[in-house]
Design a protein around this nucleic acid. Structure first.
Lengths: 153, 153
DNA sequence: CACGGTTGTTTGTCTATCAAACAACAAGGT
DNA sequence: ACCTTGTTGTTTGATAGACAAACAACCGTG
């Protein structure tokens, strides 16, 4: 009588239940899968996903402040401090003095940081191609548009 | 010359840069938006998203073990202990003795736990309808299918 | 210049996670 | 029966990431 469909001991893989009917759950599952692969790709460059995002944001907005960075990343500005500390210790980012505001720091990539970001960016491109390989170009476009509408963009 | 496109101080909203070209980034952004709304909905029932997922999993698989639950949730089995502790303290879940294995616990919802899960489940349904309101039924179906293919399901 | 608001920072706290070790128990082989 | 190996739940310690509150230095406005 080991056939009551599912669960009774701890053997047969559990059934997701109500969860699989939720679009939000499937969204999360996909995001977790992509994120795990992304994190592994970044690990090859000694970068966390958050650190890569930080480099990308600074690269696109040289001279931005720590507060602006925190806002863009969706984290508190007090959390930005140890984040930049680590990158600065590795000579990837520098806290340059701001021209007309002696309180804030103008964040910039060092040459070394820009170089690492460039190679990491190329690796991310390969990662994207790999993880979304099962989707045709038109499907990726459809997915992107639907996701943006969910985000309220 | 305050027109070099963007960023130079800390004012004008930073541009996402390389990130917005990444499908994985847009996936993450959508997931964060949905998750935040979901968490807020659950807060009304004194439940975290993880606790709701736990209740859903136990409801669909009564009698499953803590190890099986942890595997299904994607967390270590040592992390399951404090999770169940809290729910058991609130009389929502019980650690029943397993029939033929005195090591493992058979997790079950109490009547109170089943009742709370049912009302929370209804709230989640309303949450889903609200957060995906901008998508037509056919679009939701398309999104779900694309997400599942990304997950490798 | 005085005042309120902002910036980076420090400190403390909280939550969530894993890893390693452990006793109790299960299962199989001999 | 015994021994070995693996599993289950648990405890403990460590780590990472985040927030909140407070602080000195500084900006901008009145």
């Amino acid at each position: 009588m080991a056939d009551t469909a599912v669960a009774e001991g701890g053997n047969g893989m559990p059934v997701p239940g109500v969860l699989d009917g939720l679009l939000g759950y499937r969204l999360r599952r996909a995001q977790v899968a992509v994120f795990a692969d992304f994190a592994q790709t970044m690990a090859g460059y000694e970068l966390t996903p958050g650190q890569f995002g930080t480099l990308a944001l600074i690269a696109a907005n040289p001279g931005l402040s720590q507060t602006a960075l925190g806002t863009a990343l969706g984290i508190d500005r007090s959390s930005v401090v140890p984040l930049i500390d680590k990158l600065e210790r590795r000579r990837l980012v520098e806290r340059a003095p701001h021209a007309r505001d002696r309180r804030s720091h103008a964040l910039r990539l060092t040459d070394e940081g820009a170089a690492l970001f460039e190679t990491a960016r190329a690796a991310v491109a390969r990662h994207e191609a790999h993880i979304f390989a099962s989707l045709a170009p038109a499907e990726r476009e459809t997915l992107a548009r639907l996701l943006d509408r969910v985000s309220g963009v």
